[in-house]
Design a protein around this nucleic acid. Structure first.
Lengths: 337, 337
DNA sequence: ACGTGTACTGGAAGCGCTTGCGGTGGGAGC
DNA sequence: GCTCCCACCGCAAGCGCTTCCAGTACACGT
C-alpha cells in the first residue's frame, strides 16, 4: 500500500509538506506542490480516509437519509446527489429510514456517528427530538425534496405546483374537484398543507366553495390512490375531476375509474404531480418537478456547507420551478363522448 | 469525546485489556470483561471507527456499483441490500456507474479504493479489464441482479422467466409472437441471451418457426418499448402477442398500441417481466421477480465473504424464483371483441 | 553589512485503537 | 515445598495522516 511517506520520499520532501501540498494549504511553493502532485499521481496515491480522519481531517463522506430508495422520486434524488457529490470527491453513504421502527433505530443508534462530514435528509420532516439527535452529530445538515425549516434546503413550491394543477382543471371548467392527499408511513408529507391548501385556495379563488368531503387521505402509492378514488366515487355527488398528490397515486385513481367503467378524461379528469416516467407512458396529465436537479443542488449545498459558507445563517429554501405537462387525462367536464 | 482510555480507567484496567474485553478476545477474565463492559455502557462509549480501522480492523463499509439508482429495479436492489448490510453493521457507499463515461471514470480512478471491505456489482456485466481493476482493490466482490461469472452472485434465471412468459402466450394459442429486447447504455443486458433465447426456444418447442424479424432491440425504457412496438406493427404480418424485456418496455409498447387504435389484449397481447408496481396499476400481465430479496441475499453473501466463508471457491450463482402474474394485457389471439 | 521579515519546509507529537511481547501470580505436578 | 505452566494483564509500538512549532534560507530595508 502506497502511503503519504512514499509520495513524500519520491517528491523529495517531508510528509508534512506532502500533506500540505496535497491539501491545498497555503505556504507551499508552487513548484513543490506540483512535484508532490506528480509523485502522488505516479504512485497512484489515495489517502487513507481513516488516518486522515483520525488526524483531524474530514471524512470525505456524507450520509444520506432516505425513506424509500426504491421509489422513483428518491431514486432520482439520490442519483442527482451522487452526481454532484462525486464531482467534489465526496462519497455517499446511504441510510434507510423507512418505516417508523427503522427510523427510530437510526436516530437511537445514530450509525452515522463519527463517520461523516454532513448529512442530507431526503424528503421527510424531522421532528424536534430527531433534530436534536442530528445536531449531536456535530455536522452540517441539508434537506432536499421537501422543506425542513432550520436546514438549508432545496425543493419545489408544493403550493404552487398544486395550484398549477388546480388552475388547469378550473380553466377547463371544473368546479367540483376532488383531492387525494397521502400519508407516508403514517406521517403527512413534508409540506403537509402545500398541495391540499392549493386545492382549497384555487377553488375559493374560482368562487367555488371547497367541500371537505372531496378531500380523502390515503397511504402513499398506487393502491392508495385506487382506494382514494373509490371513496370519492362513493360520494353522493362525485367530483368531475381529481387532483392526486402525485403521479403514482393518480395512476391508482385511473385504474379505479377504468374498473368502474368510467372513461378518463371524458367522464372524469385526473391530474398528478411529478412527471414520473410512467406518466408519459400512460398519457397522464401532470405537473412536472425537476427531481434530479433537486438532488444535484442539494449536493452543491453540502459542498458549500463543508467549505463553511453556510455557517453564518441558514439560507432561505431554494425552490425549483414546476410546470404543467398536458397529456390525455384531463378535459373539460361533460366532454362529448 | 469518551475514549477507550476513559473506559479502561473507569474499569481499572489498561486500555489494552479494555480493547480485548470489548472485542471478545480470549484470555480476559470473565469478571474483568464484565467490569469493562459495564464501564463502556455507563459512559455510552462508541469506538472511533477510524482509529479501529487504522489499527488494522476492517472498514465496515461496502461499495455498491449501480448504473441507474433512479430505476425501480436498482432502487429495490439497493433497498434490500441496505437492509441486510445494516443488519450486520456495514455501511453502504453508493457509486454510480451509469453511462460509458461515468463507468470508465469509476474504473480509471477507482474512488472506492481503500475505502471499503467489499464491492457489490448491481446488474451489469463486468468486462475483463474492469474485472482486473476490481481485483486490484483486493476486496471481495459480489454480484446481484444479473450473473457475472467469477463472482458469487444472486439473480433470477432469465431464460426461465422468459420461458414462463412465452409459455403463457403459447398456451393461450399465440404462435406469432414478437420480442422487444433492450440495450442498456448501448450494452446488452447482463444475460443478453436469456430472455431472447427463451423466446426462441419456446417457439421452437411449440413447433413454430422463430422468425427473427419479430425480434427488435431498443434502448431500455418506455420510449424504447413504444418504438419497438411501432417497428413490430410495421411488419407485413405483425405478431399477435409481444414479450417485452421488462414491464417498463411493455408499458411503452401498450401506449403505441393504444395510440394506433388497437385494443390490448383483444387485438394484441403484451406481457412484461418484473412485476414493477405500475404493472399492477396498469393491469399488465407479467412475470414477477423478487428484486428486493436479491438485494438482501447479496448483502448476506457479502457478510459471508467477509467472514471468509467464500474464500475457497466461488459458489454457484443463486437463482431466485420467478412466477407468472396474470392480469389484463394477455388473452387468446383473435378473442371476441 | 546587519537586522528583520517572509516564505517554505521539517521534526515530531499526537489522533484512538489493536496487538505482539514480556511480566506477574496462583494452581498443578512431583 | 518448590518448580513449571499458563491464564491474565500491561507496556509500548505502531496504523497513516495532520498540524503546531521551529528552523532554514533568502530578500529587503537601512
Amino acid at each position: 500500500m502506497v502511503t503519504l511517506d512514499d509520495v513524500a520520499r519520491r517528491a523529495g520532501v517531508s510528509s508534512a509538506t506532502a500533506s500540505r501540498a496535497l491539501g491545498d494549504h497555503p505556504h507551499v511553493a508552487a513548484a513543490t506542490r506540483a512535484r508532490v502532485r506528480e509523485a502522488a499521481e505516479e504512485l497512484d496515491y489515495v489517502a487513507s480516509p481513516e488516518a486522515t480522519r483520525l488526524a483531524g481531517g474530514p471524512t470525505g463522506r456524507v450520509a444520506v437519509l432516505v425513506p424509500h430508495p426504491s421509489r422513483w422520486f428518491f431514486g432520482e434524488l439520490i442519483e442527482g446527489l451522487e452526481e454532484s457529490l462525486r464531482a467534489v470527491d465526496l462519497d455517499l453513504v446511504l441510510f434507510r429510514v423507512g418505516g417508523p421502527e427503522e427510523r427510530a433505530a437510526f436516530f437511537a443508534r445514530l450509525p452515522a456517528r463519527r463517520k461523516v462530514d454532513a448529512v442530507v435528509v431526503l424528503a421527510f420532516a424531522v421532528d424536534e427530538a430527531e433534530h436534536a439527535r442530528l445536531a449531536s452529530l456535530g455536522v452540517d445538515v441539508v434537506a432536499a425534496g421537501g422543506r425542513v425549516a432550520s436546514y438549508p434546503s432545496v425543493g419545489i413550491d408544493d403550493h404552487l405546483a398544486g395550484r398549477q394543477a388546480m388552475d388547469h382543471l378550473i380553466h377547463l371548467g371544473h368546479r367540483r374537484i376532488g383531492m387525494i392527499a397521502v400519508t407516508n408511513d403514517g406521517e403527512l408529507a413534508p409540506d403537509p398543507d402545500g398541495r391540499t391548501s392549493a386545492w382549497r385556495a384555487a377553488l375559493a379563488d374560482a368562487g367555488a366553495e371547497p367541500d371537505d368531503d372531496l378531500v380523502v387521505t390515503v397511504p402513499w402509492g398506487g393502491e392508495g390512490g385506487a382506494d382514494g378514488m373509490a371513496r370519492l366515487l362513493g360520494l353522493r355527488t362525485p367530483p368531475t375531476a381529481v387532483l392526486a398528490h402525485d403521479d403514482e397515486t393518480a395512476l391508482g385513481a385511473v385504474r379505479t375509474l377504468r374498473r368502474a367503467g368510467l372513461r378518463v378524461p371524458e367522464d372524469l379528469s385526473v391530474i398528478g404531480i411529478d412527471d414520473h416516467p410512467v406518466a408519459a407512458l400512460t398519457d397522464l396529465t401532470t405537473v412536472a418537478q425537476p427531481v434530479r436537479a433537486q438532488g444535484r443542488r442539494a449536493g452543491e449545498l453540502v459542498a458549500a456547507a463543508l467549505r463553511g459558507e453556510l455557517r453564518e445563517r441558514v439560507p432561505p429554501a431554494e425552490l425549483l420551478p414546476t410546470r404543467l405537462v398536458l397529456r390525455g387525462t384531463t378535459s373539460p367536464p361533460g366532454a362529448p363522448r
